[in-house]
Simulated scan of single mutants.
Amino acid sequence: MAIFDDEPRKKPRPHEIGQDLSLLSVDELSERIALLRDEIARLEAERAAKGATKSAADALFRRG
């Protein structure tokens, strides 16, 4: 009889900056690295898009 089968599985906690990594396996660490790399790429793309928008606005409103 499996008592614990009906209990919902807990989602793994998202990565937190500065958290203790000693309890994570090598696979878990690799997964976190991949997720963080994807997030960095997303942040850089957003920064580039905002930079392009700002440059266009600056060029439009530049006084000469």
Rank of each mutant, 00 (worst) to 15 (best):
K54Y: 04
E31P: 03
L36E: 09
L24M: 11
R62A: 15
G51N: 13
A34I: 15
E46G: 09
E31Y: 01
F61A: 00
A57N: 08
A56H: 00
V26A: 14
I40G: 04
A52R: 02
S30T: 14
G18Q: 02
A45K: 07
K54F: 05
A59E: 14
R13T: 13
R47V: 10
A34P: 01
F61V: 01
D58C: 05
G64T: 12
I33W: 02
P8Q: 01
P14F: 08
R42Y: 05
R9H: 10
A41M: 02
T53D: 14
R62P: 00
I33F: 06
L60N: 10
I17T: 09
R42N: 08
L21G: 08
A49P: 03
R32P: 00
L35I: 12
K50H: 08
L29M: 13
R47Y: 05
A48F: 11
L35C: 08
L24G: 01
L21C: 12
Q19G: 05
L29Q: 13
P12V: 07
A59F: 06
E44H: 05
D38A: 11
R62E: 07
P8L: 01
A2N: 11
G18P: 04
D6W: 11
V26H: 07
A48E: 15
G18W: 02
I33H: 05
L36N: 04
G18M: 02
A59V: 00
E44D: 14
E46F: 00
I3P: 01
E44V: 03
D20Y: 02
K50S: 09
E39K: 14
S30P: 00
E28G: 05
V26C: 08
L60S: 12
E44P: 03
R47T: 10
R32D: 11
S55K: 05
A49M: 03
D38W: 00
G64S: 14
P8N: 02
R47P: 02
A34H: 09
D6S: 14
T53M: 05
R32G: 04
P14Q: 09
D38S: 07
A56W: 02
S55Y: 01
G51S: 09
V26N: 13
A45R: 08
E7D: 15
V26K: 10
R63K: 12
F4T: 12
E7H: 07
E16C: 04
G64D: 15
A57I: 07
R63T: 10
